[in-house]
Design a protein around this nucleic acid. Structure first.
Lengths: 107, 107
DNA sequence: CACATCCATAACTCAATGGTTATGAGAATT
DNA sequence: AATTCTCATAACCATTGAGTTATGGATGTG
């Protein structure tokens, strides 16, 4: 059950939140503490942002002892790609086999 | 000069504004009056939303007599597509020749 | 057991924003 | 010239939301 474009756009609209997601995408899994350092905001603020991203399906969390590890779920961007394809028809052809791609990724 | 992903995400985060953009994408050019009918909000609200979309480069306006016609500028979505490609590397290949595509569209 | 650490939630504050009504500028109509 | 129509802007209001500090639960550590 993919998240709605609305949830995705809202989750990614905030620059701080987008930066967190980018860090998870580019640098891989991180703990809350790791993400807080360098974020320029307090740990509770980071936790709240992560909750929003999780709600949108953009991140997954994994509890290990007293720390929580978050990682990006890039597949959650699919509705965004799809929406873009619908709005800009000249790009649509490129996404034709998106379904296939996602299916192949499931293994 | 393409708009920043930040401007785009913020502009598209609001559902009403996204609906306006979708109407322009799918049904083509519209006047403010046309867009207001069926939007469920007042004309000034529509005008403000259009101003935000215009600021983000997502729409263009054309004055004709006393009415203003707006149309979607789908190319403005390019930074979004690009950003998605950077965050989800397994999609990147599809956007490799985005530059070429946009160049070809310029004629 | 006592204590420290990691994280999430609660309670609050303040700024941003999406909506409204009122108004005015500019263009068509009579 | 007076009026009507279309749209944008101003002024205002209510809500949302991103940040803060305080706190507590759960898990390690001495």
């Amino acid at each position: 059950m993919p998240a709605s474009p609305d949830l995705l756009f809202r989750a990614l609209a905030d620059p701080t939140r987008r930066t967190l997601f980018e860090r998870l995408c580019l640098d891989g899994e991180q703990t809350v503490g790791g993400l807080t350092s360098g974020a320029g905001i307090s740990q509770p603020a980071v936790s709240k942002h992560l909750a929003v991203l999780k709600q949108a399906g953009l991140v997954l969390d994994r509890h290990e002892g007293r720390q929580t590890h978050y990682r990006a779920q890039q597949r959650a961007l699919a509705p965004l790609v799809d929406w873009t394809g619908r709005m800009a028809p000249f790009w649509e052809a490129r996404f034709d086999d998106l379904e296939d791609l996602l299916k192949r990724m499931d293994q």
